[in-house]
């Protein structure tokens, strides 16, 4: 956590995590609700959308906006697997390893991605573009095998389709 002795520096860091208008919007919601804590997931999701992950400073900022202690934010943040408390690549890839995807080639998808990206599950490519994460069911059971990249869902995956998607994202990152 941040050194409490350097209070103004801390405020400056935190302010960079969200735009002023985002912070103000949350402060208005906090003022209106009887239970500010109910906004914690919304707030963490917004911090993550803007920064790619939720840092210690992000947790502190959320706590400050909601008027709760950092530990009350942290115990929530660390519970959910789609809140990243460590930096991830620009494109976090969640590969479904639950039963329906498994039954239709999910393991091959996971192996192929690990080979193509030269990383293991849980790792990030050295260029900082991709992180591979196993995930439970994504609700795409009828379109197995499936994965999510960021918030976008991809179903009926084949190895060729997978290569095409990765290539497309590499191109997108260049532009």
């Amino acid at each position: 956590m941040i050194c409490l002795g350097n209070f103004s520096a801390e405020i400056e860091i935190m302010k960079k995590l969200l735009l002023k208008k985002q912070i103000d919007a949350f402060r208005r919601k906090v003022a209106k609700t009887e239970h500010p804590r109910e906004l914690v997931i919304d707030l963490l999701r917004e911090i993550q959308d803007r920064n790619g992950w939720v840092s210690d400073e992000g947790v502190e900022l959320a706590a400050q906006i909601l008027g709760v202690t950092p530990i009350e934010v942290e115990e929530v943040a660390t519970f959910y697997d789609k809140i990243y408390r460590q930096p991830v690549g620009r494109y976090p890839i969640h590969i479904c390893d639950s039963i329906c995807c498994w039954s239709r080639g999910g393991e091959e998808i996971a192996n192929h991605l690990q080979q193509q990206l030269e990383i293991k599950l849980g790792e990030t490519t050295t260029d900082g573009l991709f992180t591979l994460l196993p995930t439970c069911c994504l609700g795409g059971c009828g379109r197995a095998p499936s994965m999510m990249i960021g918030r976008r869902f991809y179903g009926n995956l084949s190895l060729a389709e997978l290569d095409r998607i990765i290539e497309q994202l590499r191109e997108e990152a260049k532009g």
Binding site: H35, R37, R45, D81
Partner: peptide, 25 residues
């Protein structure tokens, strides 16, 4: 509307209520 952030246990109704309240679910 409450958009969640993963974990199967939230489908259990009382865990879901804790999740909605912003507590550890």
């Amino acid at each position: 509307l409450h958009g969640s952030a993963g974990r199967y246990i939230l489908g259990e109704e009382t865990a879901l209520l804790n999740g909605l309240e912003g507590k550890r679910p």
